[in-house]
Lab assay of single mutants.
Amino acid sequence: VSFKITLTSDPRLPYKVLSVPESTPFTAVLKFAAEEFKVPAATSAIITNDGIGINPAQTAGNVFLKHGSELRII
């Protein structure tokens, strides 16, 4: 599955597209996205474009099915 993750704390709204296997734990996606944007993973969260928080204790495939591919990291 592929996710387009936007960094909301930067006024330029940079984004990265990450492709991972469906079975990947979403905690790993969060950690990798945080490292890519050089923000601390421990204090970061991934939310939907509607501002709904995503529980990272599920697979990337589940997140994709529930929330789609466009996400934000805060």
Results as ranks from 00 to 15, higher is better:
L71K: 01
R72M: 05
K31S: 10
A34K: 06
K4N: 09
H67Y: 04
A42C: 04
S19G: 09
D10V: 05
L71E: 00
D10M: 07
T6I: 04
S9D: 10
S23D: 13
A57E: 12
A57P: 05
V17M: 15
G53N: 12
I5K: 00
V20W: 13
S2Q: 07
Q58W: 13
D10I: 03
V39W: 04
V39G: 02
L18F: 08
P11W: 14
L7K: 15
V17W: 14
F32Y: 06
P56N: 13
T27A: 07
V29N: 01
G68F: 00
T59P: 04
D10C: 08
P25Q: 14
T6H: 07
I74Q: 15
V20I: 11
I52R: 12
S23E: 13
F26A: 14
V29G: 00
I52F: 09
T48S: 14
T24A: 07
I5S: 00
S9T: 03
G61Q: 12
S2P: 03
E70F: 06
V20H: 01
A41K: 07
P25H: 13
T48W: 00
Q58A: 09
F3G: 00
I74R: 15
E70W: 03
E70M: 06
K31Y: 08
V1G: 07
A34M: 09
G61E: 09
F26E: 00
V39M: 14
T43A: 09
F37T: 01
R72L: 05
L7Q: 09
A42E: 14
G68D: 02
K66S: 11
A42W: 05
F64V: 04
L13G: 09
P56H: 14
F32I: 05
V29F: 08
E36K: 12
P11S: 04
E35P: 01
S23I: 11
T6F: 04
A60H: 00
I54T: 03
L65G: 10
G68E: 02
E36Q: 06
A33F: 09
A34V: 14
A28T: 11
T59R: 08
V29A: 02
F37N: 02
S19F: 05
S69L: 05
I54Y: 01
G53Y: 13
F3D: 00
I74F: 06
T48Q: 09
T59K: 10
H67V: 06
G61K: 12
A45R: 14
L30V: 14
G53I: 14
A33N: 01
A42M: 08
E22D: 04
N62S: 11
L30N: 14
V63E: 01
V17E: 15
A41P: 12
A34N: 09
A60S: 09
A42V: 05
L18P: 01
G53M: 14
L18I: 14
P11G: 08
D50I: 03
N62C: 09
V29R: 00
D50K: 07
F64M: 11
R72W: 01
T59C: 08
F26N: 03
K31I: 09
S9F: 07
F64Y: 09
A57T: 11
S69G: 08
V17D: 08
T27S: 06
G51F: 03
A34D: 04
E70G: 12
F3V: 00
D10L: 03
G51L: 03
E36A: 07
P56A: 11
E35A: 11
S23N: 12
V1H: 00
P14S: 11
L7H: 13
A45N: 02
L65N: 13
V39S: 06
S19R: 07
A41L: 06
F3S: 01
E70L: 06
I74H: 10
I73K: 01
K66N: 11
A33C: 13
L7F: 13
K38V: 07
D50A: 09
R72E: 10
T48P: 11
L30K: 15
A41S: 07
A34G: 03
G68V: 01
V17F: 05
L71G: 00
A42N: 08
A57R: 13
L30I: 12
V17R: 15
E36F: 10
F32E: 15
V1Y: 13
F37W: 06
S69Q: 12
A57G: 08
A34H: 08
K38D: 11
L65W: 04
I74T: 15
L30P: 00
F64A: 02
T6R: 06
I5P: 00
P14T: 10
I52Y: 11
E35D: 13
A45S: 13
S44L: 15
P11E: 15
V1T: 04
D10P: 03
P21K: 14
A57F: 07
P25M: 13
N49C: 04
V39L: 06
I47F: 10
Y15N: 07
K16T: 14
T24S: 09
A28V: 13
A57N: 12
H67F: 07
D50L: 05
A57D: 12
K16C: 12
I46Q: 01
A33P: 00
S23L: 12
A34E: 09
D10Y: 04
A45G: 13
I52T: 15
T43N: 08
V29K: 02
T8P: 14
I73R: 00
Y15D: 07
H67A: 07
A57L: 10
T48E: 07
V29W: 01
E70N: 10
P25K: 14
A60I: 00
V17P: 15
E36W: 06
S2T: 12
A41I: 09
V20D: 02
G61R: 10
V63H: 07
L71M: 05
G51N: 10
K31Q: 10
V20Q: 02
I74M: 06
F64L: 11
K38E: 10
V63Q: 03
A57C: 09
S2E: 06
K16R: 13
E70R: 07
S44M: 13
V63S: 00
T43Y: 07
I73G: 00
P21H: 13
K38G: 12
T6M: 05
S9A: 11
Q58M: 08
I74E: 15
I46P: 03
A60Y: 01
N49F: 02
S69I: 03
G61P: 00
L13A: 07
E36M: 11
G68M: 01
F26I: 15
T24N: 10
V39T: 12
G53D: 14
H67L: 03
L30G: 14
V1L: 03
A33K: 00
G51C: 03
F3M: 00
K66E: 14
V63Y: 02
G61D: 06
E36G: 10
V39F: 05
L30H: 15
F3K: 00
I73W: 03
P56I: 07
P11Y: 03
G51Y: 04
P11R: 08
K4Y: 04
F64T: 03
G53W: 09
I54E: 02
S2L: 04
